[in-house]
Each structure stands twice: as structure tokens, then as C-alpha cells.
């Protein structure tokens, strides 16, 4: 099953390598990985999706925690969350096809961000399924180029996704169902 992790790491050189190297070394296959800034300049946030069964998913989490620069790991696979991917799709759009393509884009609430005589660039944000859906209907017109950012995710509701302040309490208790720090 595809697991989604939100991982807070120290914003320091080499941290991305450490995380990537961990997945390689333990033979876990990353499906997508995004990194970016957060509300705190000293903290970066990664969204990682990886194919893993229940047991592997726990071990991935434990291994991430073992990295000294990793602050917090949350497996949000089963919690209500907003998950978004962004794609730019350059699609062939000759005179006759253009209006069809524009129509499809609007059905998917995608935006046209570049118009050229023979092509359009469409930008779409959404869940992976939605993007897959748009891609499928555009394919017959000729997809010339496509790029996706990989997903970013955030827990729903007003509770912060993970309380970074919890970092100040050093000792942690590990229980069977306490996935946030553990086995």
C-alpha cells in the first residue's frame, strides 16, 4: 500500500541525501519525494510516498527517526488530509483541437498558462487521480511534455499537522499502537 509521510527535518546541508540514502540502503522504494520550506526557517518539510506493507511502514518511520537531523515523522496515510500534486502539461493544440483542449481544461479546473501557435501549457493542481484523469483525456491530442512536482500533504482541521513544540520533551514512550515514535 502507498504510504504518505510528512517528515520535518533540520534545514541543513546534506539532510536530503541522508533521507534519500536511507531509502536506498534499506531497499525501500520511494514513489515521490518533495522538500520545501515551512513556517520555521530552520525546518524543512518533506512529503514522501512509498510503497510498503504495515510492518515495513513502521520500520521506515523508525529508520527515519534514527536520522539525527529528522525532527518529526508522521504517517498520514490513514488520517484525513489534503494531498496535492501539481502538473504542467504541454499539449499539442492545433487550430481545430484548441477549443476542445480548452474545454477539457476548464472541466478539470485547470489553467492555461502558456499559449503558442501549435501548443498550450496547462497547469493543474489536485489529487493524483484528478491529474491522471486530465492526462488521459489529453493524450489523444498529443502530450508533448509533462512534469509533476510529486505530492505535498497536510492534515485537515485546525490541529497543526504535527506539533513541533513536542520536540522539547526529550524522553518518549513507545507503545504498540503509538506509531508516531516507534516500532
Amino acid at each position: 500500500m502507498l504510504n504518505t509521510y510528512v517528515v520535518y527535518v533540520e534545514n541543513k546541508p546534506g539532510v536530503l541525501t541522508r533521507v534519500a540514502s536511507l531509502f536506498r540502503r534499506r531497499a525501500f522504494n520511494i514513489d515521490s519525494l518533495t522538500v520545501g520550506r515551512t513556517e520555521k526557517p530552520e525546518v524543512s518539510r518533506m512529503t514522501i510516498t512509498v510503497e510498503a506493507d504495515h510492518d515495513q511502514a513502521r520500520r521506515i518511520e523508525a529508520n527515519l527517526y534514527k536520522l539525527v537531523n529528522v525532527l518529526l515523522v508522521e504517517n498520514i496515510t490513514t488520517v484525513p488530509a489534503i494531498v496535492r500534486d501539481l502538473a504542467m502539461i504541454k499539449v499539442a493544440a492545433t487550430h481545430e483541437a484548441r477549443s476542445h483542449v480548452l474545454e477539457l481544461a476548464s472541466v478539470f479546473r485547470a489553467r492555461v498558462v502558456d499559449v503558442a501557435p501549435e501548443s498550450l501549457i496547462i497547469e493543474i493542481t489536485g489529487g493524483e487521480d484528478k491529474i491522471d484523469g486530465l492526462l488521459e483525456v489529453l493524450r489523444p491530442y498529443g502530450v508533448l511534455e509533462m512534469v509533476r512536482t510529486g505530492i505535498v500533504a497536510m492534515r485537515r482541521g485546525n490541529k497543526p499537522s504535527a506539533t513541533l513544540s513536542s520536540l522539547e520533551t526529550p524522553a518518549q514512550t513507545v507503545g504498540d499502537d503509538d506509531l508516531s515514535q516507534s516500532v
Binding site: L67, L72, L167, P170, A171, D176, Q181, S182
Partner: peptide, 12 residues
């Protein structure tokens, strides 16, 4: 801040 070597098991 991310290094927590002192883990302990839950009572149950």
C-alpha cells in the same frame, strides 16, 4: 532537537 536516544516502553 531531533535526536531522542532515551526511549522507554509503555506500561502495558
Amino acid at each position: 532537537p531531533g535526536y531522542r536516544p532515551d526511549l522507554s516502553p509503555a506500561p502495558k
